[in-house]
Design a protein around this nucleic acid. Sequence first.
DNA 1: CTGTTAGCGCTTTCAA
DNA 2: TTGAAAGCGCTAACAG
Lengths: 341, 341
Amino acid sequence: MEKKTTIYDIAAKLGLTAATVSRALNNNAKISLNTRKLVLETALEMNYEQNKLALALKSGKSYNVGVIVPRIDSNFFSTVIRGIEEELYPKGYHVIICQTHNQENLEIEKINSLLNVQVDGILMSISNADLEEDKGFNKLLKNKGTPLVFFDRKKDIKGVSSVTIDDFKGGYDATKHLIEQGCRRIAHLYNDRKFEIFNNRFLGYRQALLDNGIEFDESLEIETISNVAEGRKSARELLGRDRPPDAIFSSSDFAALGALQEIRERGLGIPEDICIVGFSNEPFTKFMELTITSVDQFPMEMGKVAAQVFLEEVSNIQDIKIAKNIVLTPELIVRKSSLKT
Amino acid sequence: MEKKTTIYDIAAKLGLTAATVSRALNNNAKISLNTRKLVLETALEMNYEQNKLALALKSGKSYNVGVIVPRIDSNFFSTVIRGIEEELYPKGYHVIICQTHNQENLEIEKINSLLNVQVDGILMSISNADLEEDKGFNKLLKNKGTPLVFFDRKKDIKGVSSVTIDDFKGGYDATKHLIEQGCRRIAHLYNDRKFEIFNNRFLGYRQALLDNGIEFDESLEIETISNVAEGRKSARELLGRDRPPDAIFSSSDFAALGALQEIRERGLGIPEDICIVGFSNEPFTKFMELTITSVDQFPMEMGKVAAQVFLEEVSNIQDIKIAKNIVLTPELIVRKSSLKT
DNA sequence: CTGTTAGCGCTTTCAA
DNA sequence: TTGAAAGCGCTAACAG
């Protein structure tokens, strides 16, 4: 375990001073060609590597950004993170990831933790719909030096930018598509409406019905958790009704899958008897034999755009900051589960 | 954008010295109960937050670890990372992620980049099978201060620990299972054998055949890339043979899926005519109607164990380090695609 | 129990 | 063109 060589080491070896070495290395100031060459050579030879930590302390910029997500092992979030990393690395930033598992206390804790390690910004998707603008946020917002950018699950906070998709349109298009397929009793499995994203999908669904002269039927609107078992459960409930639906639009692909399984097990045909549309375009929706129609959220794009917003904000910390709310357009991917021929 | 408060600020306010404040905050040395209370209170009131960067520079420990993977948006890697994060965060570490996209130069570059930001260790899955123990590695190994831990895709390097699964056993069990189902002409779609993991799956396959008195047939062994299209292509090739196989063991779930699709489109039955086994237990394998038998690699465990190995190594940097090579046991998950009744 | 001093590695005035 | 000195925020050894 040998010590890392510092600019002092190479200064000593050359009979120079650290300042000179620093200058030579950064080819900043005017330095004699000779000394520069000399410094560069010995730096190489001594395996010198700049200690970015010292630089960070000195400059106040760590070139680290924190990303907070409910969990990383989901296709959506890991793809967003991929986008963020790919956009930020070329600009010299590293990405620190944090998971909250939807635990309220962890969300605040991780924000503070990231602030402590002096990240230059935080990109996050809210885990906790009830999250108030408390400690963590306030701190972020007060020292306007560290920008905050929401992606996907945002919260309307003055001065905070966000990148989301148009969930209303996603819900609207999905429902409209089902109507165009001739469906009239369209059920909706929705997730916790305290989250903007789920509420917007819900509202889009309602609006599409309205625009097409279909009255919504509350008995067809069921709150569901985003997993296969819950999707099955909801489907069971719907199929038990006097007048079962002829289509299901689920705000989660997993619940859509559960519904699909339940329906087929009962001998009903998809899409003949019931059409199904999910949301998120999870990989499995296109891998199945009975491919599932879904709404693509362009997670990679979302990550890249969120990163860009962050980059803009760090470069203008002085200026009065105008929050930017970027909304990406989702795309309905029509597949077998909803395509009547 | 107000300045962050430092211990000097609170020292000034209290007519104390920074050292005292530091001590009070860390309740380290003997401090009068009074001053401690005073310091703690004003710290709170002034919104003091420790600057971990300064601490890092001072102590030489950044409490950051780097994780390098080919890509993060795959179920396997993102789950490993989840495990790593969950194991390390409680110990005070943050996780920095880097992707290589299998680009050779990026692999070295990211290692160096992480080293520059003074990570306390690097956990990585090799992207480049040909990677020699060059620059990046040498640097890591020379200054033994920063431990390196391989997971999944490792390379045998003296003094470097690793956490992998027993790919040989994975391949062996998969093949044995197929034999038990009555299959005799078992094809194998293998990935680049320059990677230990793929080679071991291959060898396990061969050994299982041998142990059961079946001679391997090179014409049934096809190199494939891990995606659906390539799986289809390989299946097409196999089905064109004089004596097509009665089973396919693929070292990738994606290629297995491609093969499955191709086979069914040709009107052959799975598992009646051809059994299929994949590898990795990707989520979709259990979501499909025709569920796919696969080998679970326990990625979450792998991440946690890799993190533990790292933790051990950082705490013993002084001692002579004995590399640890931990091998987890995979599990064959039998599903419809290979279960003849 | 608390103050003084020095130093982690680097950059950046200010002088020379 | 280069050196001297200070400072980023914190801790730790040594005094007192």
